[in-house]
Design a protein around this nucleic acid. Structure first.
Lengths: 296, 296
DNA sequence: AGAGGTTACGGGCAGCGTAAGGATC
DNA sequence: GATCCTTACGCTGCCCGTAACCTCT
């Protein structure tokens, strides 16, 4: 019926790029039937099928290929229009943001404040998870921007390097002073969640140094880690940027067992295609926030 | 609210090009409030006014100028998409067609048949009127294509020349034979409606030849003219292409008073901007129909 | 007062989500 | 059977048209 809409073209692009109706639905924040309907309507106004429903791998018809090239030009034009003529204060939309917990604890609120200031009508959907899940979600296109232990080495992903976090060893102020700081490592080590890079690295080094006695308590919550250290349940290697506060309050203190984990290097990562001005802006704002946090 | 639509951009273009909300409404087959609403919504999603409501002459804001350039690119792209990827059998829309009565009598049905064959879902809105009104309607953009005594000499109008119609003099078969065919001209002359070129030309020549006695009965209906000639109410100079039938049936016959009106030269005329594939196609089909009619 | 434009409001319809029904491996 | 997609259906919300109002000449 009637006329082609930009929504239909965008949906078509998502279906082709993500390789399926369901995937497109996820990427568009819609249900599967909605996307299905949009596709059907588009084909109806075109007057011919644009993709062959070969299960497993959908294939564009000849006309579909033609439409694709047009849809891409429409998309590019729309992106430029959004960037150039819409005043940012009025720009509406969703930004699905995925962040590692370290970031969430450090400068996420600053980032969100900046973004909200720049795009007051933007709906920001927050997702705090471990990097490996964020990576999957990003490649699934179920989030738009991920701030994680990067980079995400896929040709389709754009990575912006953020300043790293030094990790320091902390022990409760209530702990008995040790003659050798290395002895602290025989106590339980609170650290990042399983399936994270710091966890794996910690595990390797710790077994190497301490042997089979090493005990690790992985936690998905950094603030919980600090809390447990304060309560003298064990020691932890955590971002100094976060520990500084607790140290200042006198609840924990730093110690030096002679080695450190590598600094945590985060990236702001997002899919290069489709180009999206808001996402790009958010990524650079993330860098700004990270630098500001580092400077403070 | 939400997102910019192609309809909004098209509406914006119409408002700018036609110089007003009401004019745009006419061009878009909408009511004034509908266009008003579209404009308001567009400005709302843009987040800033795009045109100054200076009474008499609306003026684009700076942002409006920017939007205009984008809207034009969108329009161009949409036109190409319609032309290249939509199968003609499914193309929907309106074509507001204005034709002179001569054409309506000769090959309009052929043209409409062709168009309907090529674009079965196209709604064709027919308007038979005299050329001067068609010209106004075309420039008003209340019709999309005019087939009239042309050309329309405006820089904004595209004219396609159609083969001309020879005019012949007819008199009823029932009329008394005249010694001199020129005597027939002293009888009432049935001819084209007032405000048409043939009427004016006829009037001038007739007064010149016959003097103040000349009586003219202008009629807006050519078939009525023929009918009246058949009934021997007067004589007429009418397209030979139309008269041939009546002559063949023996109801009227041709005569030669020694002079003829100039052939009627029609054009298929349409606004060059905005470029519209359907209108262009219809204009060239009009030429095809005209040539086919001439050949038959 | 009249032309051109904007609100106010009711109704129709497109398009979404939920839920159920294929198809294909 | 599991995954992926489509169909069926109720519903919300957008957008158009009618009508009244505004404003400037």
């Amino acid at each position: 019926m009637s006329r082609i809409t930009l929504d239909q073209l965008k949906t078509f692009l998502y279906i082709v790029r993500l390789g399926g109706v369901g995937k497109a639905a996820a990427g568009l924040n819609l249900t599967q039937p909605a996307v299905s309907t949009r596709l059907r309507n588009l084909e109806q106004t075109i007057g011919a099928p644009i993709l062959e429903r070969a299960e497993g791998s959908l294939q564009l018809t000849k006309r579909g290929e033609l439409l694709l090239s047009y849809a891409e030009r429409f998309e590019q034009l729309s992106g430029l229009l959004e960037r150039d003529v819409i005043v940012p204060q009025e720009l509406e939309g969703h930004l699905r943001l995925g962040v590692s917990e370290t970031i969430a604890q450090c400068w996420l609120s600053d980032l969100i404040t900046r973004l909200h200031g720049q795009f007051p009508k933007l709906e920001i959907e927050l997702n705090v998870d471990i990097s490996i899940n964020l990576r999957t979600a990003l490649l699934n296109r179920s989030i738009d921007l991920a701030i994680l232990l990067g980079p995400v080495s896929e040709y389709s992903v754009e990575n912006i390097d953020l300043p790293g976090f030094d990790l320091a060893w902390y022990v409760s102020s209530k702990a008995d002073p040790a003659s050798d700081p290395r002895d602290y490592l025989k106590r339980p080590v609170l650290t990042y969640a399983r399936q994270t890079r710091p966890y794996r690295e910690m595990k390797e080094r710790l077994f190497e140094l301490v042997g089979a006695d090493a005990r690790m308590f992985p936690s998905s919550s950094l603030s919980t880690c600090f809390r447990l250290v304060e309560d003298n349940l064990g020691v932890a290697a955590l971002p100094r940027a976060l520990g500084a506060d607790h140290v200042a309050r006198g609840t924990i203190r730093e110690f030096d067992p002679g080695w450190h984990l590598r600094p945590l290097v985060f990236t702001a990562s997002y899919m290069a295609e489709p180009k999206n001005h808001v996402v790009e802006t958010a990524a650079t704002e993330a860098l700004t926030s990270a630098l500001a946090f580092q400077g403070a």
